[in-house]
Amino acid sequence: MAADTLVIERLNRTFTSPAGDVTALSNIALKVKKGELITLIGPSGCGKSTLLKIVAGLDSDYSGTVLLNDKPIEGPSIEKGFIFQEPRLFPWLTVEKNIAGNLSLKDSKVRARVDELIALVRLKGFEKSYPRELSGGMAQRVSIARALLRNPEVLLLDEPFGALDAFTRAHLQEVLLDIWQKNRTTMLFVTHDLDEAVFLAERVVIMNPRPGHIRTVLPIDLPFPRKRASQSFQELRRKVLSEFEKVEEPAVDRDHGAGI
C-alpha cells in the first residue's frame, strides 16, 4: 500500500457575499495515494475548482484539514504544480525560458531537465518559439512541462483541456497519460467532460452542487491504454453519468464534452 500523499478531511468552504453566504464545499473528505491519478467531475458550481485551489494554496479561507505529505498547506508552492485552464505562459519568453521560469538555463542541471521535459511533452524543435507562435494545445503542453520541472508532489489540473478542440484534447490526454506512466506524478484532474474523466482516472470523484459535496468515488479498473469505444468503457461512462441523474434534474445530460 502506497502512503497517502494528500489527505482532505471535513473540508468546508463558504463564500460570503452581501447577498448571503454560499457554501461552496461541504464536508469534503478525500485521500489520494502517492502516484494516483484522480479526476474530479461535476457540473459547474459543484466546487471542484475551489477544491483544487485550496489544495494549491491559492485559497486559504477554509475550515477543515488539508494535508500534503502530513503537512498542512501553507500558501502556493512548487510542491503543488498547477495547470490553469489557459496556458498562462509569459508572452515575452521563449518556450524553454517559460519552462525554466525563475530558474536559469545556464545551470546545466536545469538545462538537461528542460530538454528532457520538452521531449516528454513532444515539443522538440519549438524550444526557441514564442507563445504567440504556438497552438493552444502546444502552449498547454509548455505549461505542463513548466509545472513538472519543479518535481511537484502533486500536479493539480484545472480543466486544462477544456478550451481545446476534440482532437487536440484527445491527443493531450494521451500525452498526459504517457507522462503519468513515466513519472508516476500524483495528479488531481478537474474536468466537466465525462469521457475525459473516465479515460484518464484510476478513480473518478463525482461531485454535486448546492452545496458542493462528493457524491461518490468510482474506481475505474480498466487497463491502460483504454479504448473509448469498448463496451466496458461505455458501461463505466454510463455509471458515472447515472450518478448525476440521481440528484440532478432528470433528462439533462451534463456531458459537455461528448464525442471522440
Binding site: L58, G81, F84, R88, R150
Partner: peptide, 21 residues
C-alpha cells in the same frame, strides 16, 4: 493578474516577481 497567480504557484520571490514578471 492571471500571470501573478502563475508567479505565486511557481513560488517566485518578490524580486523575481519584479524582474521576471
Amino acid at each position: 493578474g492571471k500571470l501573478f497567480d502563475v508567479g505565486r504557484v511557481l513560488q517566485f520571490s518578490k524580486w523575481h516577481m519584479i524582474t521576471k514578471l
